[in-house]
């Protein structure tokens, strides 16, 4: 405790050196694992106490493409993510509307209920989903895996969209009605453009969630619906660390790219938080 006190004290005294050392360590511990993966994926004959691989090669990427059929797996992952995003958005818009603009008795409680799948460990209901899907023959279909992802993605979509829809200005809707637009027209020409940023945010978040989802996929995948995270896991089990690293780089680059791309448009903080004070 005393040590901590001295530590905090010195930081508070504005010692820039200490602060930057802290930030440097922080940056290092976050990014160096990815550098390690990157080096492992292009290194050859990297044994013993060497800081860098002695020879460079792209063999592991070739292996990843040829042996693990990474293009098909990427296609699987994307198809599943697109289906999951579409279903979640279609669920999110009406339900978000109900939460944002209609009077519902016990709204808070209902919202907490909808968010429950994010509180309970996924493995607990993934077991049930697997059993139900086996019975319905949904296992090993793209639609089935995507539907399992919806269990995680839909709460995200509902949360983001209800916040967006709640922020709609009532007067705009009234103006539209006064100008003689019917409900249909109002929805497509007034409401939809207004909530489009919210829908985009929701799409990005649900897509990321589905793209990275592992637990639910592991319980419902089959040989035709292997996704990138599952394939990475299987490759780690097989012990091919170099090939696994190559696959991981292919898997991780879109994620980081998306993060840096969207940081100006949407506050990526929401990706992590999302709860209003639990």
């Amino acid at each position: 405790m005393n040590l901590l006190r001295i530590y905090v004290k010195s930081i508070l005294r504005g010692r820039k050196v200490l602060i930057y050392t802290f930030l440097l360590c922080f940056g290092l511990i976050i990014y160096v694992p990815f550098i390690m993966i990157m080096l492992r994926s292009v290194g050859k004959n990297w044994f013993g106490r060497l800081w860098l691989p002695p020879e460079l090669t792209l063999d592991w990427y070739r292996w990843a493409v040829e042996v693990t059929k990474i293009f098909r797996i990427t296609a699987n992952t994307l198809i599943i993510a697109v289906i999951a995003v579409a279903i979640s958005t279609l669920i999110g818009i009406p339900t978000g509307w109900a939460f944002g603009r209609r009077k519902i008795p016990g709204k808070e409680l209902l919202m907490a209920m909808i968010l429950l799948p994010r509180m309970i460990p996924p493995i607990a209901y993934a077991l049930g989903i697997a059993q139900v899907f086996y019975r319905l023959h949904l296992v090993n279909t793209h639609f089935g895996v995507a539907l399992a992802h919806v269990a995680i993605c839909a709460p995200y979509a509902i949360l983001v969209l209800s916040a967006t829809i709640e922020g709609l200005d009532e007067r705009v809707l009234e103006a539209s009605a006064v100008c003689g637009a019917n409900r249909f027209k109002t929805f497509f020409h007034v409401i939809l453009p207004l909530i489009l940023p919210g829908i985009l945010t929701s799409i990005i978040f649900t897509f990321t969630a589905s793209y990275n989802e592992f637990t639910l996929t592991l319980m419902t995948y089959g040989k035709d619906t292997v996704t990138l995270p599952v394939r990475t896991y299987l490759a780690i089990g097989e012990g091919y660390w170099e090939v696994t690293s190559a696959m991981s780089i292919i898997l991780v680059i879109p994620s980081i790219f998306v993060l840096f791309m969207i940081q100006r448009q949407v506050t990526p903080e929401k990706l992590v938080g999302g709860f209003k004070g639990v």
Partner: peptide
């Protein structure tokens, strides 16, 4: 940087 661990799949983070 703070968000990176939540954006990449947990498996990859663990591998790194």
């Amino acid at each position: 940087t703070m968000l990176i661990p939540r954006v990449v799949p947990g498996l990859i983070g663990a591998l790194g």
